[in-house]
Write a protein that binds this DNA or RNA. Structure first.
Length: 290
DNA sequence: CTCCCGAAGT
DNA sequence: ACTTCCGGAG
């Protein structure tokens, strides 16, 4: 059932879409998959440079799979959540071993790959293969919740979004990109730009006076002082060092020895760091995928 | 300090 | 259903 929301947003998108390099003609499924993983938790502006480096260095899954995981972690730079880099490396290996080196174009096969969840699998199918799938990230949830239900945070499921997409494959893929773009640049969480919104006239949320949620949703933890920050500091040292790093150099980045050790152990457990000996550490140099 | 906002493990 | 996992911009 093509909806007013999907149709109007698609028209708007064709005039107002940002010119992002992974949207260019001829960009392959692997490059799009990389972009979606990088964008999972990181703003566009920070992804641009690293994505370009990755696709030039590793234009196919086989190119990435042929290198040690540590190279992916190093090239991830400061994008954050570096387990994504490790999973992308594992993902490349799986694509080579199980799919002949080509990104699969079926939902169940994508969902089975490491680091690929409900959102990313459908984003790749839509944006790389032009298929019709509900691509639901928090932007899309917010847009649909506001426009159709008039509230900030109604639970929006895949089925509901599937129903509002146009029936044609390429029209649906376009609408999915458009809904995400609208949520990102117009129907923003904090500062919505309703004055330029293509669906303002039929937005339930706007009609109701842009009601805020009953519960303001408190964010329990800040980043400063968390294990995540310490892990980031430790990994940065290893990333920027060509040679293995002795423990005493890691001791410099954080004063609390208990937390520092806990962070180091969790990095080892995640496979983001390897111990060369009991007091020397390096990025993983696991043998490339066979 | 706040905002950003997906995958996977439990 | 709830928690862990980053880091830069404002």
């Amino acid at each position: 059932m093509p909806s007013f929301l999907a149709e109007q947003t698609s028209i708007w998108y064709q005039k107002n879409a940002r010119d992002l390099p992974w949207r260019h003609e001829g960009v392959g499924a692997w490059a799009i998959l990389i972009s979606e993983v990088m964008l999972q938790q990181t703003p566009v502006s920070r992804v641009l440079t690293v994505w370009q480096e990755w696709i030039e260095r590793w234009p196919s899954p086989a190119d990435l799979a042929a290198e040690p995981a540590g190279e992916a972690i190093r090239a991830w730079g400061r994008l954050g959540y570096p387990r994504r880099a490790m999973r992308l490396h594992e993902c490349a290996g799986e694509i080579v071993r199980r799919h002949g080196g080509e990104v699969p174009d079926e939902l169940d096969k994508l969902l089975a790959l490491p680091g690929i969840g409900d959102y990313t699998a459908r984003a790749v199918l839509s944006f790389a293969f032009g298929q019709r799938h509900p691509v639901v990230d928090t932007n899309v949830r917010r847009v649909v919740s506001r426009v159709h239900h008039g509230v900030e945070d109604r639970a929006i499921g895949l089925a509901e979004v599937a129903e509002l997409l146009p029936l044609g494959q390429s029209d649906a893929a376009l609408a999915s990109a458009a809904l995400m773009e609208l949520g990102a640049v117009v129907c923003a969480a904090r500062s919505p730009r309703c004055g330029v919104c293509p669906v303002m006239a039929e937005c339930r949320w706007k009609q109701l006076g842009s009601p805020q949620p009953e519960k303001p949703f408190r964010r329990p933890q800040s980043y400063a002082g968390t294990d995540r920050q310490v892990r980031g500091l430790l990994l940065a040292v290893l990333r920027e060092s060509a040679a293995p790093v002795p423990r005493h150099r890691l001791d410099l980045v954080w004063p609390d020895g208990v937390q520092r050790e806990r962070a180091l152990q969790s990095l080892l457990a995640d496979g983001l760091v390897q111990a060369q000996s009991c007091d020397v550490f390096l990025l993983p140099d696991s043998t490339p995928a066979q």
